[in-house]
Design a protein around this nucleic acid. Structure first.
Lengths: 218, 218
DNA sequence: GCATCTATTTAAGGTATCCTAAAAATAGGT
DNA sequence: ACCTATTTTTAGGATACCTTAAATAGATGC
């Protein structure tokens, strides 16, 4: 239980880098709903423990050891989530939340055996399996927030993530459903509204919304 | 996640009182492997929140609300543990540990549906169901440590609990298995050894051992 | 009824994590 | 190359737990 938090940082760095890239402090902070200051503090610790490569003002990446840990964690998350949705028929959002909490506590044996119940091979190398992502939708690949897209960028919605669940619901009701194609048509300024095309429709959304929608670029 | 600790205190108070009695600070402290000072501190908080009745120097009991919460928690623990042992065929000790961690995070819906998979009715009122106890053995009823038994007291071993798992293994290897009949033959002083009868055998054990064996008195 | 022992609480301090506000580093436009 | 806007870090402080050591309440033997 003592390391749950560290593990949360690891898995979220994996989610944003897929193990091969770098994330900036601020991006990780907004993804995890904490302040950049908290991230900085934690990165120093994880760095000392050899789990991440961290250089001041340069962002973080996972070390080899960090990737292994994070992948195992992500695997447990996937398995638990799939077990909850596919076997117990629990709603996705709840399944995700519970998987987030439980992923730190279940043993590998438990994960393996649940995996057999689901009937799908789920291993730590996310590229070889068709898993639900952290939100229960698609395999995780490096994804960015719509607020970070450049004009003309195209992609598919990976998942929605926001501190307020009302935001997620609102977005879903507007048609921002994981898997849909999305393109940034116009972005006037960093702070202003964006005009985006989603499927056939064209919608304007503000920065907060754009920060809660994560996309896999084409 | 923030309330896991409070919940641990609640469920352990329930385990030692079955919701109807009082536990002393020290007993709870040694059961939970923390210092009495920590218990005192937490009891003040839980008391302020209306979950326990606490009076300085008098011990604690659960309030009605506290009993409800603790029972629901215990139910989730039982279900998770049974799921792990009966469905996934995980070893008892590991199942217990994982259930301890997970009981705080799974929803009632998840618990209900797992319960159906196990095929046994498990409800919050422990008296109406034959569940594994916290250690996977028997229904919890009020239980006391052997170190608290009086000369002549008889009972059945409920479970073993100690900070060191080596202690538990040692005790099991000596024949202290949940379910066995046990009687305190002689107890010279509080700190000294006890002589006890377990099944047909008579054994002497020291105070540490006696503090790790919990018994349901006849 | 008092001395003494034990249980309990209080006091003071530690660690992990979070936050806000201020300071410092970097990056981008000219 | 410099100014400015943004990002990141540092500093200082809060909270939830935990600990040890000292103080106090309650129980027990005579």
């Amino acid at each position: 239980m003592r390391n749950d938090n560290r593990e949360d940082y690891l898995i979220n760095i994996l989610r944003l880098t897929d193990g091969t890239g770098t994330v900036r402090t601020t991006e990780l902070a907004s993804y995890m709903q904490v302040t950049p200051a908290s991230v900085t503090e934690m990165l120093k610790i994880l760095s000392k423990e050899g789990l991440v490569n961290y250089q001041r003002y340069r962002g973080v990446s996972l070390t080899e050891e960090g990737v292994l840990k994070a992948r195992e964690l992500r695997r447990k998350h996937h398995i638990m989530e799939r077990f909850l949705t596919d076997v117990l028929d629990i709603d996705h959002e709840q399944a995700h939340d519970q998987a987030c909490a439980v992923e730190h506590s279940i043993s590998e044996e438990t994960a393996d055996k649940m995996c057999r119940m689901i009937g799908t091979k789920i291993d730590a190398d996310c590229t070889t399996c068709k898993n639900p992502c952290n939100d229960g939708t698609v395999t995780i690949v490096k994804c960015i927030a719509v607020s970070k897209m450049r004009q003309g960028d195209k992609g598919k919605i990976s998942h929605l993530s926001s501190g307020e669940s009302t935001m997620v619901r609102k977005l879903i009701s507007m048609g921002f459903v994981p898997g849909r194609d999305i393109q940034l048509t116009t972005s006037v300024s960093d702070k202003g509204a964006r005009i985006i095309k989603i499927g056939e429709a064209t919608i304007a959304i503000d920065k907060d919304m754009a920060s809660a929608i994560f996309v896999n670029l084409e």
